[in-house]
């Protein structure tokens, strides 16, 4: 797992999850798996913004960018690269 994925994964398990036995990397959709709810999305975005000093626009707050570890990693990389 990349350093970036590792950090995101740690944040999710320490701040958003109640159940520690969830395989975050293997989850295809956080929403469907019940890992994340509406306030969770806001917290996650705040975490991304603070950790990587990026700014997430309203229209970027969609499942295509945030709903799995792989999507999150790709999204943050895109933001950092561009």
């Amino acid at each position: 797992m990349s350093d970036l994925s590792q950090k995101i994964s740690e944040f999710i398990s320490s701040s958003l999850l109640l159940d520690s036995n969830v395989d975050i990397a293997g989850t295809a959709s956080f929403l469907e798996a019940g890992i994340i709810d509406s306030t969770g999305v806001l917290e996650l975005v705040q975490f991304l913004e603070e950790t990587w000093e990026i700014s997430v626009k309203d229209e970027e707050m969609v499942p295509a960018n945030l709903d799995s570890l792989a999507k999150l990693e790709a999204f943050v990389k895109r933001k950092l690269g561009g």
């Binding site: 929403l31 469907e32 709810d37 509406s38 969770g40 969609v62």
Partner: peptide, 9 residues
């Protein structure tokens, strides 16, 4: 819709 987690959606 399943939830309001993504208001933009």
């Amino acid at each position: 819709e399943r939830s309001f987690a993504y208001p933009q959606l």
